[in-house]
Design a protein around this nucleic acid. Sequence first.
DNA 1: GGGATTAAAATTATCTATAAAATATGGCCG
DNA 2: CGGCCATATTTTATAGATAATTTTAATCCC
Lengths: 222, 222
Amino acid sequence: MAEAKDDTIANRISRALADRIISGSIEPGARLRQDHIAEEFGSSHVPVREAFRRLEAQGLAVSEPRRGVRVAAFSLGEVKEVAEMRAALEGLALRQAGPNMTAAILDQAEEATRAGDKSHDVRSWEEANRTFHRLILTPCGMPRLLAAIDDLHAASARFLFAAWRQEWESRTDHDHRAILAALRQGQIEVAASALARHVQWIGKKPVRTGSGATREAFAIIG
Amino acid sequence: MAEAKDDTIANRISRALADRIISGSIEPGARLRQDHIAEEFGSSHVPVREAFRRLEAQGLAVSEPRRGVRVAAFSLGEVKEVAEMRAALEGLALRQAGPNMTAAILDQAEEATRAGDKSHDVRSWEEANRTFHRLILTPCGMPRLLAAIDDLHAASARFLFAAWRQEWESRTDHDHRAILAALRQGQIEVAASALARHVQWIGKKPVRTGSGATREAFAIIG
DNA sequence: GGGATTAAAATTATCTATAAAATATGGCCG
DNA sequence: CGGCCATATTTTATAGATAATTTTAATCCC
């Protein structure tokens, strides 16, 4: 990898933990005990503490001094909040990216959409989805904005995994195609508002719980 | 203080460093040497490293592995970027805050504006300005959004200090008053777009450099 | 038998020490 | 006299150890 050089232990740990939190393999509210994690990664606890600080800044963990750090809980309200922030920021990014958009980028984005259609598990679908969004937004040339959007994507994905972990069905993503079509015609405003709507869509879906009953769950699609 | 209890050394250090970076008492690009800082705060370097990670996440410092941490440089492009992000996010926040707005909050905001008018130095003006924005946005009830806006405010303030450190003149802020007037009449959309424009305004101003020459500098007003 | 209290264990936050890497310095050779 | 290589110093990054606080658990009293 090209980033093998700037790979510090704290970075590796924070990425690994972020992945676990996002994929739901660690429950919300679960305690993250620095010594256990340090032992697992074969390091001391100092890089673990640094990783904690990054996760905290990303909103994936919350820390109470002297009482440890926990995986951040997330309510429907927070999911809506993240969705609205994404709508605002991705809309801005796409509007700025418009003038720099090329056909090559749109082709790559279309390929990413196809990859999402073909995927049979949440993980690869999420990967393709993120690729799509990143591709059409990167030309905005605003690194700070893109970094903020990336963090929001992580928070969204976390919810996506939680909601759809039990049953997952592949499906085509018409929204992505509509956005691409508008971009190809140079209709940036149309694409931007479609993207904003796409990202804010929060669906309801009955989910079977462990005890056999069904409850209303929420899911994002974008 | 109420927060005296959750005050860890790393928090104290990160706050102190953030204040210095924002106020410009540390130059952009300057190296932050952990042992020196640790010695200054009478601590070891471990909490200093944790503070670095937080500053990095806030965009106030950049870290290259094995090569140390530096105060983040900021170009006009980055200032514009932050301004656009603030416009998008503060607009969103104000629209959400609208329904929860009360006359009491607007009165407090007006008082903050008056305090800004009366202030004779950048620091107290910035304080009043931040108070104003926070007051009218807090009712949105979206903690993550407010935290993101706060970080962007810090980045803005940093530029404000840098641009206006040499000569500062107190002035009335008509934009704040216009926003308040719209809010009092319940015209949330008018207020939100006024806020977005207000935040994106970047002015040019001749500034005398140390060598006596004048150069064009940029400044934000909100 | 239940709630409160106290004692033990685990965990966090910090410091001191050590190893690895990068920058700066100085001498040597062309 | 200038460029280059080797050494030395500075600085980062990690490890191991210590003190204080929180959590857990068991005991005692009501």
